[in-house]
């Protein structure tokens, strides 16, 4: 291996350490509760950096092997310092029939999200009624909630086991009628607090859906899942999701998430 690459690898490894140390809060030696772990996992999955951009590709494969593609650029900006309100700007590039459409979400905690859809062929800014968070996102096996995060207070959490690499957390919904699962387990990586695997079960303990992180990479000091899969074990379908051209702390102005930039694409930040 080339020395430069070695050095780079070493550097990137060193960068991870402060981030990891911070995430684990080594200054506070009190044992982590299940809620602490879930909070950190939630932060690592959805709130790294003040803002970010990524090109997301989805390969949706049904039980018969038929494949559909989705591709979009996603811009994200967090409001405030606590892991709360967030804004998302999703610019579709594939397939051709949704190309140049924009989907914008302002995610609230404790109330319905605000959503807009911009249809360029009609120059129409459409306000969309908030939908069930547990329905398919753009026809994939990922739910809205998988993409934007599930309210950590909606479930009760328990550490059921752990080893040197990860904790296993069992999560039970506080309102069982609001969701399609009876419980879910998440395998959370100890060093990074990234969820490595999540399984959703019905009342009999049968697996309904399964998420797995396939590939993780360091981006500007943030460990980032760049490849993952969500399987629906009932239908036999699955969706592979890949992140590329990931950037953090790009200095997104607040007004990107307004009607102005629905109608006029903010190219500078989408590139």
């Amino acid at each position: 291996m080339n020395h430069k690459i070695k050095l780079l690898l070493l550097l990137s490894f060193l960068w991870t350490v402060p981030a990891v140390a911070q995430a684990q809060g080594v200054k506070n030696p009190a044992p982590l509760t299940a809620m602490d772990i879930v909070k950190k996992a939630n932060h690592m999955s959805y709130y790294q950096g003040k803002d970010g951009r990524a090109t997301v590709g989805m390969r949706i494969i049904d039980s018969q092997g038929r494949t559909r593609i989705r591709q979009f650029v996603i811009l994200r900006k967090d409001e405030g310092k606590t892991d709360g309100e967030q804004k998302f700007y999703v610019y579709f590039t594939r397939p051709a029939d949704v190309k140049k459409m924009v989907f914008m979400v302002i995610k609230h905690i404790g109330r319905d999200d605000d959503r807009w859809l911009y249809l360029p062929a009609l120059d129409l800014v459409k306000r969309i009624a908030a939908s069930d968070q547990r329905t398919s996102f753009v026809g994939s096996n990922f739910f809205y909630e998988d993409v934007s995060g599930r309210d950590i207070n909606a479930d009760s959490h328990k550490i059921v086991s752990q080893n040197k690499n990860y904790y296993v957390i069992e999560n039970k919904p506080k309102d069982p009628n609001s969701v399609e699962f009876a419980s879910y387990k998440s395998w959370i990586h100890k060093a990074t607090f990234l969820p490595l695997k999540v399984e959703y079960y019905d009342a009999k303990g049968k697996v309904l859906r399964r998420y797995a992180a396939l590939k993780v990479a360091m981006v500007a000091g943030y460990p980032t899942v760049i490849s993952s899969v969500m399987e629906n074990l009932q239908t036999g379908g699955k969706t592979l999701m890949s992140y590329s051209e990931v950037k953090y702390n790009i200095g997104l102005p607040d007004n990107i998430f307004t009607e102005r930039y629905l109608r006029k694409v903010p190219r500078k930040y989408l590139r």
Partner: peptide
């Protein structure tokens, strides 16, 4: 997952 033991920097773009 791949890349987690000894986290590496982002590979080159794998755009669809």
């Amino acid at each position: 997952p791949q890349g987690l033991s000894g986290l590496s920097t982002m590979p080159a773009a794998t755009t669809l």
